[in-house]
Design a protein around this nucleic acid. Structure first.
Lengths: 207, 207, 207, 207
DNA sequence: GATGAATGAGAATTCATTCAT
DNA sequence: GATGAATGAATTCTCATTCAT
């Protein structure tokens, strides 16, 4: 299920090439997420991907393009959509599902690109002067999370699990908190994760 | 009241000079807080202070020293301590006091240096590779907030206003959330501030 | 007499600064003229001007801006207009005046920026992908020469000194030849100049 | 007829291989002639030759070698000598022959490598810092044209078709003009070619 | 042979820092 | 003290050249 953007993996990219690009994009996502886009140097991406900086430019035209394609790739490849689908199938309550999402946001995994995209996208939401196409991509990716979570919040409010109030605004606060704290120090949050997730959920849950 | 660091030998600085330095340090705090330390350029500080960048170097030896002295100055001069003192005098409940602190953390004020220091310090808490003396200063400043807030949390827990659990860890989560979200986009939080503060407090409060 | 562009020397540029800029622009004109714009490296300009490359960027934002301002400066400062004015005052025949212009085109002088501009402008006339504002400037500068010489050619044709035929096209050929040969190796043309100028003039003159 | 340089040991190159090399050299000559040697990128040659850039390096060791061998090839293969032979056989007057040569210099043809070599060689005549062996080759190639044209000029002077004066110098001027203007914008000269050739010839002809 | 992946030296540009006035 | 001129190290990006497949 590809949602917002043209498919990346054109058939003409043979497997090898695609894997190389993905290797670089995964490295880029990690470094962008950890250091912020502006502070990320090409050399850091190259180092993380264990290739020369020249090779990065063999596959991408510019830093902006690395960013763009990496986010695109992250949205395609990652399991976010799958995750939400699974979530919606399950018989958990809305609040349980939001907890599940919160957990997932912090989860680190090498293939688990998903939350890196989330972090990058949230960082970029605040930045001015982005090239238009990137801005649009970021906006779309942001909307994706909002659209996926809004029904859960609405349902939770109807069932009395979640506090009343403007749903959109409430979700906005929750997402902003999530993305901000992930940006800062993900490792902090992974310690004692369950308990911290409970604390965060208290912001919106009725007890 | 100087807390953690060597005195600024201000006696030998004549008034004029001290005022100049302060003008620059106030500008630096603002720009550091808004843009992050690494992304702050000397020219931005100079512009904010309405002086030439050359003059900045007349008073400070390096960017690191600007940072160091500015934090130091912010801790000295600012009203944080006064604030906490007032808070402790008052007859509010601990939770009320924490709410007051939370409000304060977001408040913008040109003279109000206090929360800029808080923001900078929290940003730096996460950064690697800081010069030792800065790292130490940041750590001390961080501790200051912890030490000031711990009694409030303890008291709140005793009174049953605040949820049980490891106090230190609970405070840690709360401070981390606060500092992270301030780093990202202070203006977002200033809209509809009271309501957002309520939401944040729900993390720790018992209702 | 400023013709095509806004004045450069705003009063607020103090003398020192203006002189420095001019020093760099003169160097740039020389290097651009000798090596072509694309092959000119900032370091070459810096070296010719005997300054660091950093200083070049203190005065100019980019290579394109150096080019733009240098041409602008060359058109302002140089003696081209004065030259044409003098020429038109004089009692020479049109052909004599064209000979005078031809001589002038080859003349080298350190202050004599004029023919460097001529060369650069003619080089750029052929290049694609120039930024718009530069393209416009180049076009205007090119037109200047055409407009200044057209009356001489017309008059010469009327008087029977210059061969008949489409004046514009004839002038086009003459200017193209002049600029091309100056681009290649000015020093060659300076040897035995008078004789070579005679040869060139034979293209258009009736004997 | 090979003139200036060591044989290309073509006997041991099988036909296929030689054809491949020639394909690349023809492409190189075209691209060098159109863009100048320094501004020509290997990728441009590869693209023109419709091969990968890797293959270019399979047949040549370096850009310099491509240049060297291509000029060499152009001098060998092309029809210049044949052309001059034909010219000398014919019963035209010397001036007619020079006109013929001038026309030829501008003529574009995909197989017609001859004038590309002429252009490249003339461009390089002016460049400093060429590797020695290339410099020598360029010099020899230049001499070839001079040697071929000198008799025509001498004869023309004797017959009173061409103006008097130092023959060598007169030829030098004529060749310099030709090569310079070809370097700049060949397409300009192809429009209305005959008329422009007439104009150029006026430089040396007696009417 | 043929491709294009991979490397690294070099060029434009930014910015902390020093220095002359 | 105050300005901004001047420098050079670091960063993004280009391209000749080498190498694995």
């Amino acid at each position: 299920m590809k949602i917002y953007m043209a498919p990346l993996n054109e058939e003409q990219l043979d497997k090898k090439k695609r894997e190389r690009k993905e290797q670089i994009m995964r490295a880029a996502l990690k470094v962008f997420a950890d250091n912020g886009v502006k502070l990320t140097k090409i050399s850091m991406i190259a180092k993380e991907a264990k290739v020369s900086h020249g090779l990065v430019y063999h596959y991408f035209d510019s830093k902006d393009e690395i960013l763009y394609e990496s986010i695109e790739y992250g949205m395609q490849e990652n399991m976010v959509e799958q995750f939400f689908n699974d979530l919606n199938d399950s018989r958990r309550t809305p609040l349980e599902k939001i907890k599940q999402f919160t957990r997932f946001a912090f989860k680190e995994s090498d293939t688990g690109i998903s939350n890196m995209v989330f972090r990058i996208v949230q960082q970029l939401n605040v930045v001015n002067g982005l090239p238009d196409h990137i801005h649009e991509l970021v906006e779309n990716a942001g909307k994706f999370y909002i659209e996926a979570l809004t029904p859960l919040f609405l349902d939770g409010q109807k069932r009395g699990e979640i506090i009343q109030g403007d749903t959109e605004e409430l979700l906005g606060v929750y997402l902003t908190v999530l993305s901000s704290i992930m940006a800062d120090d993900p490792s902090f949050w992974r310690e004692n994760l369950e308990w911290k997730v409970e604390i965060l959920l208290r912001m919106i849950s009725i007890r």
